[in-house]
Design a protein around this nucleic acid. Structure first.
Lengths: 133, 133
DNA sequence: GTAGAATCTGACGTTGATGTCAGGTTCAAC
DNA sequence: GTTGAACCTGACATCAACGTCAGATTCTAC
């Protein structure tokens, strides 16, 4: 058995992932995270849960919704068994959404760079003027 | 005068930008969009409003909030007059946020590519099996 | 001047991920 | 067995960018 069985409770998982306890419970409620339970109904997580939560955070940060993640996770876990034309469609739509949003962010970042350049220049001149007064 | 004075009303601006009428009023309420008014209080927009709305949509799509946009717009309009250390800070924070989110989206897109590859392969095999039955 | 389309303001509804609080239970250590 | 920390469920709160609806007013064309 490779089962090290080093189970942790929700507080530790929260500390190790940065996700709030509330969020972890929410993820479970959305079917994105599983846990075994203690006889007293306290949640127990394996080491693998840490990676799973990190994956969830990544996908959330990339703008995926809980629903979308719930649709795609089976494909992540069961490499090919759970794939349907619908899930493939979700993947491709999401990929498109990400592409357009990346484009918007790149353009916006360029705009910000111009603004930052102008702003630092302006503030530098202001500071110089103040120093020579 | 270069004032062509081809003013348009909110319905036309909506049609030309893709933003809903509701959104345009909301933008104005947030101080992101200005309009003159007809004697009967109907909004009138110049051609420049089209570009402004497109800019707003871009910034929203890049994840900026109304508040952030409201802070930065003066810097866009008055190249250097309205810049303070605070606005510069907002710009830099927003740039950082965009960078980390782009990173998340790139990683997620890579994951999706792997999934899509596996999925198309699996579905192709399924289809082939069905055809040869 | 009248009809019908467009617009106005104001207010309440929605959605999704999470915060927060209440009241009760369980766990770990002593 | 007692205590204090951690945990449980359930419920309501939040926030932002809208949607939507109501009731009134204005514009445009005839």
């Amino acid at each position: 058995m490779t089962e090290k069985d080093t189970l942790m409770r929700i507080g530790e998982l929260s500390a190790r992932t940065g996700a709030s306890v509330r969020s972890l419970r929410y993820y479970e409620q959305q079917g994105l995270l599983t846990s075994t339970r203690t006889t007293g109904a306290h949640r127990l997580y394996t080491e693998a849960a840490v990676d799973r939560v990190h994956l969830l955070r990544l996908l959330y940060e990339a703008g995926l919704s809980s629903d979308t993640i719930a649709t795609l996770l089976p494909c992540v876990d069961a490499p090919a068994e759970k794939v349907t034309v619908d899930t493939l469609d979700v993947m491709q739509r999401e990929r498109e959404r990400i592409n357009t949003q990346i484009a918007a962010m790149l353009t916006t970042r360029d705009h910000l760079d111009v603004l930052i350049e102008a702003a630092t220049g302006h503030l530098d001149r202001q500071r110089d003027a103040a120093l020579t007064t």
